[in-house]
C-alpha cells in the first residue's frame, strides 16, 4: 500500500516539476525575442504562472477550503494597493 502512495506522490510532484521546467525554458527563450516593452509583462506572466503552479500543487492549495485560499491570496490585494496608488503619483508627475 505505502509503495503505491509513495509512487502517487512522486508522480504528481514530477509532473508539476516538468511543467515548471517548461515554463522556465519558455521565459528564457522569450527573453531573447525582441518585443520592446512587451518583454517585461510576458516575463512576469510566466513567472506568475510558475508561482501559481507551485502554490496550487506543491503548497496544496487546490485541496484546501475557501478560508485558507483567501488567507493565501489576501496579501496580493494589498500589494495591489501599494503599487496602484504609488504609480498613480509616479506616472502623473509634471
Amino acid at each position: 500500500m505505502s509503495g503505491g502512495e509513495a509512487r502517487a506522490i512522486l508522480r504528481r510532484g514530477l509532473l508539476t516539476w516538468a511543467g515548471l521546467l517548461l515554463l522556465l525554458l519558455a521565459t528564457l527563450a522569450l527573453a531573447y525575442v525582441p518585443m520592446g516593452w512587451l518583454n517585461l509583462p510576458v516575463g512576469l506572466a510566466i513567472a506568475a504562472a510558475k508561482a501559481l503552479l507551485v502554490a496550487l500543487v506543491f503548497m496544496d492549495l487546490r485541496r484546501r477550503d475557501l478560508l485558507l485560499r483567501l488567507a493565501a491570496g489576501a496579501s496580493l490585494l494589498w500589494i495591489g494597493f501599494l503599487f496602484l496608488l504609488t504609480f498613480a503619483d509616479l506616472l502623473s508627475r509634471p
Partner: peptide, 24 residues
C-alpha cells in the same frame, strides 16, 4: 514546506526582473 515554497516563489519572481531584463 510552505515557507520553503515561498522562498522559491520569491526567486521565481526575482529571476525575470534581475536576469531577463534588456536581453532582447
Amino acid at each position: 514546506a510552505l515557507y520553503w515554497h515561498l522562498v522559491d516563489v520569491v526567486w521565481i519572481l526575482l529571476y525575470p526582473l534581475l536576469y531577463l531584463g534588456g536581453r532582447a
